[in-house]
Amino acid sequence: MDMKRDWTLPGLTVGFALIAVVGTLVLPDWLMALTVNSFSRALAVLGLMVLWRCGLVSFGHALYYGLGAYVVALLGKDWGISEVLITLPAAALLSGLVGFGIGFIMRRYREIFFAMLSLAFSMVMYGILVKTEALGSTDGFSIEQPSFMGWTPEDATEKLHTIFLMLCFICWAVAALVHRYLQSTLGNLTRAIRDNEIRVEYLGISAQHAVHIKYVMSAALAGLGGAMLAISLGQVDPDSMVNWPVSGELVFVTILSGPGSVVAPFIGSVLFELIRTYAFEWVPGAWQLIVGATLLVIIFFLPGGVWSLISRAIGKREDL
């Protein structure tokens, strides 16, 4: 165990406060929008990181990502509810619930089987959305303007700033909670489960049970991330939110970030968005090539993700 003082929580607090203040004052709109997209994705990645710490990789979390997004979109469309204090928790809750149900099957599987089954479930969701004309089929549909505690922003800039600040707060709170969880006995089992499940069971704890909890957590986080993305972009559709390449992208960012710390997903996500934005702008015909090559480089040369660089720089033991 690392006996050094853990600076993660104060770091998170200071970091997000700084981002919120400095971001509001200096970030141009496009960079703020990019940060919002990144942080939304980072929430989902945070959940995947929890799973990855016990050796599980889900290739189907776009299921929950998309579910969260569609929950927000549908609440607005069918019930006229655009209040984020309702839509966001609803998205996370429903994603968590669906994760709870599917978790009963998922928790029995490990390794590649876990990855493939999760992919299968996400493709079922994709099939349903593509087929449902009422949900706009492959087109998806637009989302109502969100309101924040009853207040609706008047223009794009106001909306963006509000979402940005709200997201900074949510990310701070979620990252702190996840960090606390990972430090707890149950959370610490993540590594133990990956190393040796039988030993875990000798401790009198069901490994399946522990995996189930983590799965539900990651589902709720992915739902929350998808919901945030939907609110900021104002549009949902199956190909951008639920199709398998989206799941692949989430896993990619997880690997890019590295499992070392709850801070990593936020850094990794911003990095990913920057790579993608510039690749798309400079070589529109080959941006996938650049993204793919980056992924290979990370896999081969930086297995701990970008966090391993940072932790090395600040002289911390790699927490793999």
Binding site: P28, D29, W30, L31, A33, N37, D139, G140, L229, L233, G234, Q235, V236, D237, P238, D239, S240, M241, N243, T277, F280, E281, P284, G285
Partner: peptide
């Protein structure tokens, strides 16, 4: 010239980039 493929949500994000960044 920019690419229109990749899904509607991606197009929305790209449109924002076109206007706000580029």
């Amino acid at each position: 010239f920019v690419d229109e493929s990749g899904g509607n949500t991606k197009q929305v994000a790209e449109y924002r980039n076109l206007v706000q960044k580029r």
